[in-house]
């Protein structure tokens, strides 16, 4: 029996597209003072990671749900990569997870949980790339442990790949990436799509206010 034969390989073409506009993005509320200062500088230079509000909330809520029991959580970030001028950036549109095998200092997908994870991938509703992963350090702060670094090197070594670390106890978050083999903090923005605005697609009319005979104002 011969091993499988690789006949042909193809890479994706990275499309040119503008990142989410500044009026629809902001810093994560859990950034520390130092990261927030860095964010403001990076905003003007061009960010390389944009996380949708939906994905941000799913990651945060996942971490918060297990904060009291001090259990780590983890998931994969789904999105795509684009180019804007010379810079490549990643968009995280959603996240997926499944049952976990976790403790206060370790996490991985439960060996029996993959089919649930795959169902979420099938139901994502868009073409995706796995642009990174997230996990929590409940009460331990946001850093990349030796296990995390090994995961990043083994699985997420491209520049567009990111690792999000959340500490739900201290309400802190940081992003990291590998830059030529060195782990670095990555500045990122949370963005929201236009349709997520409660007023998108509607015109807002000024309410007419009139007084009734008793002098009590009522709205029409």
């Amino acid at each position: 029996m011969r091993p499988p034969l690789v006949l042909d390989g193809k890479e994706i073409q990275i499309e040119e597209r503008s990142p989410p506009p500044t009026e629809r993005r902001r810093a994560h509320k859990w950034l520390g003072e130092k990261a927030l200062t860095r964010y403001k500088d990076a905003e003007s230079e061009g960010l390389e990671l944009f996380i949708s509000k939906v994905a941000k909330e799913k990651m945060r809520n996942h971490a918060l749900r297990h904060a009291d029991e001090k259990k780590e959580v983890m998931g994969l970030m789904l999105g795509w990569i684009f180019r804007s001028g010379e810079r490549e950036y990643a968009i995280v549109r959603d996240v997926v997870t499944t049952d976990l095998d976790s403790s206060s200092v370790h996490v991985r997908f439960d060996r029996e949980g993959f089919e649930k994870l795959f169902a979420s991938l099938e139901e994502s509703g868009f073409d995706y790339l796995i642009v990174g992963w997230y996990h929590s350090h409940p009460g331990h702060g946001c850093f990349m442990s030796s296990t995390d670094v090994e995961t990043q090197q083994t699985l997420f070594g491209r520049r567009h790949h990111s690792a999000i670390v959340i500490d739900p106890v201290n309400k802190a978050v940081e992003a990291f990436f590998l830059d030529g083999g060195t782990m670095k903090a990555r500045d990122f923005a949370v963005y929201w799509d236009e349709y997520e605005s409660p007023y998108h697609g509607t015109s807002v009319r000024t309410r007419r206010v009139r007084s009734d005979p008793d002098g009590v104002p009522s709205a029409e």
Partner: peptide
């Protein structure tokens, strides 16, 4: 699909 492992 990547199968990551995290540590704290």
């Amino acid at each position: 699909i990547p199968d990551p492992e995290g540590g704290g």
